[in-house]
Every structure is written in C-alpha cells, then in structure tokens.
Design a protein around this nucleic acid. Sequence first.
DNA 1: GCCTCATGTGCAACCAGTTGCCTATGCATC
DNA 2: GATGCATAGGCAACTGGTTGCACATGAGGC
Lengths: 179, 179
Amino acid sequence: MALEHAILVSLAERSASGYELARRFDASIGHFWRASHQQIYKVLGRMESDKLVESHLVAQESRPDKRVYAITAEGREELAAFTRTPTGPEVLRSDLAVKLRALPFGDRDAIVASVRQRRADHAATLAGYEASAARFYPDPAAVPAEQLGAWLVLSGGMRAERGGLEWCDEILQALGERR
Amino acid sequence: MALEHAILVSLAERSASGYELARRFDASIGHFWRASHQQIYKVLGRMESDKLVESHLVAQESRPDKRVYAITAEGREELAAFTRTPTGPEVLRSDLAVKLRALPFGDRDAIVASVRQRRADHAATLAGYEASAARFYPDPAAVPAEQLGAWLVLSGGMRAERGGLEWCDEILQALGERR
DNA sequence: GCCTCATGTGCAACCAGTTGCCTATGCATC
DNA sequence: GATGCATAGGCAACTGGTTGCACATGAGGC
C-alpha cells in the first residue's frame, strides 16, 4: 500500500489537488511509481477519512473549482514511520522479457520491433530526465540537503533508463539487427 | 494478463506441475516476473478451461501425486500471437525510491539501513545469476539460437542487478556512509 | 514420538489497480 | 457553431494479485 506513502511525500513537499498529484506522478516520481487519477482520487478519499490529509475547496477563475489536499501532523508521523519499515524486494513485470524467452515459439520480427520501440522509449525518457537534471541540479556535487533524496531518485531513473537502453542494444545486436 | 504468457513460455520449454512452475518463477524468469503458487494454480485452472494447456495426474513414490501440465497447440498459437502484440511501457514500483524522496521527512538511519539491505540483495541475486551464466552459457558469444532468448533475459537481469548495486553505492556515498 | 522441511494442491477473503464511462467549465482552433 | 484540449473530479465493474489458511505425504533430525 505504498501509493499512500508516495502521495504523502508529494504532499509533504507541497499541497496539491488530485489532478496536480496525478501529473506529478507522470513526472517526478514517474519512473518509480505510476498512478492513474482514478486511483489517486480513491486513495485520497480514504486518506482523508484516516486523517492523514485534509482538504479544502478552492474557487478558481476560468477553470473549475479544485479540492486542495494538505498533509496533517498524523500524516507526517505515518510517513516517518513508513521510512522505518523494512523494504521488501522490488517487483517488476516485464512483458518484453517474456517475449524474449518466447523467441523460439513466436514471431521474431515482431519481437525485434518491440525491442526497437522499447529502445526509443528509453531514449525519450532518458532525454527528459537529463533535461530535468540539467535544469534543477546543474551541479550534482552540490545538491542542497533537502533536495538530495529527489536528486538521487532522478539519478536512479537515469541509470535505469541507460541500463535499459544498453540492454536493448545488446538484444538488437545479438539478433543481428544493428542500431 | 501476461502471467498466462509467462506460464505458456515455461511450459513450451518443458511440461511441469504447478509446484515446479512456481519454483521456476523464483529462478529463471525470476528477475522479470514473480508469481506465488496460489496465483499459478488459479491461472492454470483457467488456462485449462480455455484449452491453452492440458494436464494429467502422475503418481509418484514417496511423495504426493502431481498434476503435470503441457501446452496445447492452441496454447502455442496464443503464445505466438502474444509476441505480435504491442508491448506497453514497463511498470515498476519502488518503495525504496519513495523512501529516498521521504528523506527530509523520515528517519535517515533507517533509510540508509534499507539501502544497505537492498545493496546486499542485489549482490546476492547478481552472484546467483553469474553462477547460472557461467554454468549454462560459458561462451556468451556462442549461445545456440534456441537458447538466445533465455540468455538475453539472464543478461538483462545481470545488467539490472549491477545497475541497482551501483545506484545503492551512489546513494550511500551521497549520504556519507561508505561501503 | 514429535518437529520441521520439502513436495504437492488448493480455497476464501480481501485489496490494489485498471478500464470504461460520466460530469462540468472555459479557451483556442477550425 | 462545432470540435478538441486542458482543467477538475468522480463512479461502477472488473481483474489480477496477495494473505492467510487448510490439507496430505514422506524423509530426516532431536
């Protein structure tokens, strides 16, 4: 149930509406956690019942009213407690790996096409992360303490994307398809 | 619903009981797909109704009878069709990344301990993969065509573990905790 | 004789997350 | 005027997966 905690982190950094949270999940945490807006609204509702967050309506001009959520003291305690819980192993599910193993039983050209697509996705995401890194952390050796966690997450995202990209290249080369 | 396809791949390589499949998921696909035995039994039942697999009971001495599943012709078609479907983006959920972002709001020592634990996990898994690689693919440049997919998946697993390990080291260094 | 471990299969309840749909406003574009 | 897009919020139905438990067998250790 760590989506709750991902939301708590986001709200601890800055209060936001459900809609804004959904967009942040597309960006900042992006690589390491994904959530649809439906899921976010659902969880926000439960979290408000549990007193981890509180909300108030904000009227806006030329766009619909929004409900802005803020973390409560209880929410901060819960978040701190979360950092003290043991961390389980990573879960990942890779369709692409299943397809690779299915090489002898499937359509080689289609699989190669999937790898190419994946490679392009990695390249695009990496470019986005590198742009963020250049903008927000121009000097990685001198990141302020309060931004260190966010920087390390971004750095991990870049590592993962580069790793994925190299793997795609290895696959394409092994399958005799250059580039 | 790619668990089905992961099972089909496994059965296409060799027929197996539910129990065996569960253990294979701990090992070979291991890094890229995880499944509990309950989940596997459930899905196997549905797959048999769908005629993708068929089973027969095998009596054994000194251990319980088992139900061995084999892929059907229809199952092979389904698997081939799967390789032709577009591959969506990878989904991963990293508790550790959430904890890192929670650095300013949580317990630094506990987070460092989690990273150390994660580092140890990566090292252990990597060692296991490298042992498999040395045993089954002593010469990576000359992997037989029918094992190429499996080798590339293993190679991807090693890459990911090495990447994770390096990330942990980067984090520990940034947090001023050597080793 | 009891306990634990490995083998082997399974159910029931629950929870998390996805899919598909719906509402509403205002701006910009065709 | 119609269409599409960004903002903003949400429900209902479903499915995939987890948790917790139960059953059964035989081997090996205390």
